[in-house]
């Protein structure tokens, strides 16, 4: 649906990018944004995805890439307070934006209640989808409140795929984390 199949039979030369396109890439673009509260300005190749900017430019490797079709949610960060898939956003597009990654959640060495809840409820196994899950979970609370029923959480997690946990404990963690966000008044970032 999203993609038309690549013509596998086309001649290899046809697959080569036009020379002009390569040249066009020589021009960089300036981007200024705030990452976990720290202002950052960089001159970047326009094709730099937000996730690449975070991982490679900022060396914040907690944000992961798990697919190339904007489905798995391992790359979810908050942009201006809302969860987005950083693999499907150009860094250049978010000029002026505020980005929060998993590394920006804990304050003064104290874990965010949602981080605590994932540990307390064994909401992670291999840990790879976890940063995206936690960022999504906080976003769910921001949108849906701190009193979340199971069906709501399961539905709202449709943009995050976990292969390890079967979601059982993730759902428990999100609900508990939400409740704890309520009590700790840390709901909004």
């Amino acid at each position: 649906m999203f993609f038309r199949k690549k013509d596998s039979d086309r001649a290899p030369e046809a697959a080569a990018p036009p020379a002009a396109a390569a040249k066009a890439g020589d021009g960089t673009v300036s981007v200024s944004l705030t990452v976990n509260g720290t202002p950052v300005t960089a001159s970047i190749d326009p094709r730099t995805l937000l996730v690449q900017f975070i991982r490679e430019n900022q060396r914040l490797t907690g944000t992961h890439v798990g697919c190339d079709t904007s489905q798995c949610g391992a790359c979810v960060v908050h942009l201006d307070g809302r969860a987005v898939k950083s693999c499907t956003v150009l860094a250049a597009s978010v000029d002026g934006g505020k980005v929060t990654t998993i590394e920006g959640l804990a304050k003064d060495g104290k874990l965010h209640p949602m981080q605590e809840a994932f540990r307390e409820h064994h909401g992670l196994q291999c840990g790879y989808c976890t940063p995206g899950m936690i960022m999504s979970a906080i976003d769910i609370v921001n949108r849906k409140g701190t009193n979340l029923d199971e069906a709501t959480v399961r539905h709202e997690l449709e943009g995050n795929i976990c292969r390890c946990t079967g979601y059982h404990n993730i759902v428990a963690a999100v609900r508990a984390g939400a409740a704890n966000m309520s009590s700790s008044r840390q709901a909004a970032e």
Partner: peptide, 20 residues
């Protein structure tokens, strides 16, 4: 027992191969 390894995973401090 709550998992010892979780501290790094929930704070984005895991070290997967592509992080290296």
């Amino acid at each position: 027992v709550r998992r010892k390894e979780d501290q790094r995973f929930i704070t984005g401090k895991g070290h997967y191969t592509d992080d290296i």
